[in-house]
Design a protein around this nucleic acid. Sequence first.
DNA 1: GCCCGTGTTGAGAACGGTTATCATTACTGA
DNA 2: TCAGTAATGATAACCGTTCTCAACACGGGC
Lengths: 134, 134
Amino acid sequence: MAIRRNTWQREAVREALERSEGFISAQALHTELHRTGSPIGLATVYRALADLSTEGEADSLQSPEGEAIYRSCASIDHHHHLICRQCGTTAEIEATEVEAWASRVAAEHGFTEARHVVDIFGLCADCTAAAARA
Amino acid sequence: MAIRRNTWQREAVREALERSEGFISAQALHTELHRTGSPIGLATVYRALADLSTEGEADSLQSPEGEAIYRSCASIDHHHHLICRQCGTTAEIEATEVEAWASRVAAEHGFTEARHVVDIFGLCADCTAAAARA
DNA sequence: GCCCGTGTTGAGAACGGTTATCATTACTGA
DNA sequence: TCAGTAATGATAACCGTTCTCAACACGGGC
Ligand SMILES: [Mn+2]
Ligand SMILES: [Mn+2]
Ligand SMILES: [Zn+2]
Ligand SMILES: [Zn+2]
C-alpha cells in the first residue's frame, strides 16, 4: 500500500489530463485515451484520477449534473473556475473579494473551519456564438 | 402539462420538507414520510422535489458525496448557504457582493447564461464548542 | 538477466442515486 | 356525475462509480 509502482497507465492518465483543456470527466478521459491508442481500463482511469486528486495534482469538482470532473492543477493554491458547460473549457479566476466575503460571513455566524465552493458555470464566448447561429 | 392538479402527495412532500431541519435527500425524505404514515412512492417524492426546486420553493444542491439534497426555501429569491458539515444545520446568507462579482467575472470572460455555485461548509458555533471540549 | 513477492490492472459484476415506463388511479372542469 | 387527462407508483432501466478477483507486471534482491 505504501510503495507506488510506475505504470504506463498512470502516466498516460496524467498526460491526457494535462493535454485536455478544462475540466473533463473520467469517462471522457477514458474515451480520449482509447481514441489516441491507449487501451487502458476504465477502472484504472478512475483510480489514477482519484490518486492525482488526493496528491493535489488535479482539481476535482462535481458538475451541476452530478458528475465528477477533473483538471490538471498547475497551482496547488486554492482557486476558482469559470467553466463552459457546453465545451468544458475553463478559466481560472482570482477571487480575492470572494475569499474575504466567505471568511467574513462564516465568522459572523460563529462558524469555524470554513471551506467554500465557488464556481461559475456558463456558456463561453465561442459556444454562445454557436448557439446564436442555431 | 400546463395544469397542475392538487394531490395529498405533493402537499405531504412540501410539509415534510418544511418540517425537516437543514438539507435532506429524496430518499431520506421518502423514509421519513413512510415513518409518519404516508405511503408515498419514491418516484413521486423525486418528482415533487424537482417541481418544488424549479418553482423556487426549495433549494437543491449536490452534497460532496454526489447526492442531491433539498431544503425548504423561505425566500423565493436566489441565495446561498452556510452549512455545518457536522450536524447539517444551515443558515441562509445574503450574497449581494458575490452576485455582482459572479456576473462581472462571467461577463469579463465573454461567458453568458452564467449560474454560480457558492456554498460555505464549516463547523457551526455549537459544533465548534463541542469539538473544543473533546 | 532472472525470480519472486506483491502492487496493479481490467473485464465485468455490483452498487446507489435517479429517471423512464406504463397500467392504474383520481383530480377537475364541464 | 362523468369523461378527459394529469398524477401515481411498482418496477425496470439508466448511468456514474466502485468492487471483485484472476491475470499481469514492476522492481528490489540475487
Ligand atoms: Mn476561494
Ligand atoms: Mn448567488
Ligand atoms: Zn464553450
Ligand atoms: Zn453544527
